[in-house]
């Protein structure tokens, strides 16, 4: 019991450390903010206010690139020496759990920003707003979990950002298809028979990714 509380405590401390670092530097935040706004603005210049299906597709593509950019930084900003220092202090499981939590937080904020800027620049075809916000949050969580694990692997391969795209894009394809399908109900009053199943599948995928990350990350760190 005591050990469990200390593990939790350590994880939370690491999350706090990442948050404080981010609040001081504000690098990731403003970097990604600029990224979102310029992307959405370019879409606006090209197609104005698209209709709902294209709006949906555009939004999820923006989400994808935002998550790649925001989360790739989470391991790249740690220098080799600092990683070694963490390794001597905490169990790798606490470390990856902290990264997962921090990235979920970061991605939740980024998702809201992406949603708001899409609404401003691309118009609002959404009927069921709260449903869509929920799906966006779920999508943000799923994408951040997946890319955290992949960023950890890519960090081992000489911090290669291109590698993250190669590894990540095939894996995130089914995820994104699933999310875009689930989100359809927010635009048109349509009955989708497989909807509960799709939610279950999404949750199953998240559990799978978290489980694999927890089991495999300690091996990744043995350097």
């Amino acid at each position: 019991m005591a050990q469990q509380t200390t593990a939790l405590h350590r994880t939370l401390t690491l999350v706090k450390k990442d948050l404080v670092l981010e609040l001081r530097q504000k690098y990731a935040f403003y970097g990604v903010l600029l990224y979102i706004i310029s992307t959405v603005f370019v879409i606006n210049m090209m197609m104005g206010h698209p209709e709902e299906q294209i709006w949906n597709a555009q939004f999820w593509v923006v989400q994808l690139f935002v998550s790649v950019n925001a989360i790739a930084k989470s391991f790249m900003q740690e220098s080799r020496g600092r990683l070694l220092y963490f390794y001597s202090l905490v169990h790798p499981r606490s470390f990856i759990a902290a990264k997962l939590l921090y990235n979920i937080l970061l991605m939740a904020i980024m998702s809201i920003i992406a949603l708001v800027s899409c609404l401003i620049f691309l118009g609002n075809p959404i009927i069921n707003v709260w449903y869509f916000v929920g799906v966006v949050m779920l999508g943000g969580v799923s994408l951040s979990l997946l890319f955290t694990m992949l960023a950890a692997i890519a960090a081992q391969a000489n911090q290669n950002a291109a590698l993250m795209a190669i590894m990540g894009f095939p894996i995130m394809m089914p995820l994104l298809m699933l999310l875009a399908n689930i989100a359809r109900s927010a635009f048109v009053p349509v009955f989708q028979p497989g909807l509960p199943n799709m939610f279950l599948l999404l949750a199953g995928m998240d559990v799978l990714i978290v489980g694999l990350a927890m089991i495999l990350f300690p091996f990744l760190w043995k350097d």
Binding site: Q156, L216, L220
Partner: peptide
């Protein structure tokens, strides 16, 4: 090591 982890994934 890294590819073994990705392979399981």
């Amino acid at each position: 090591r890294v590819s073994a982890i990705y392979n399981i994934f």
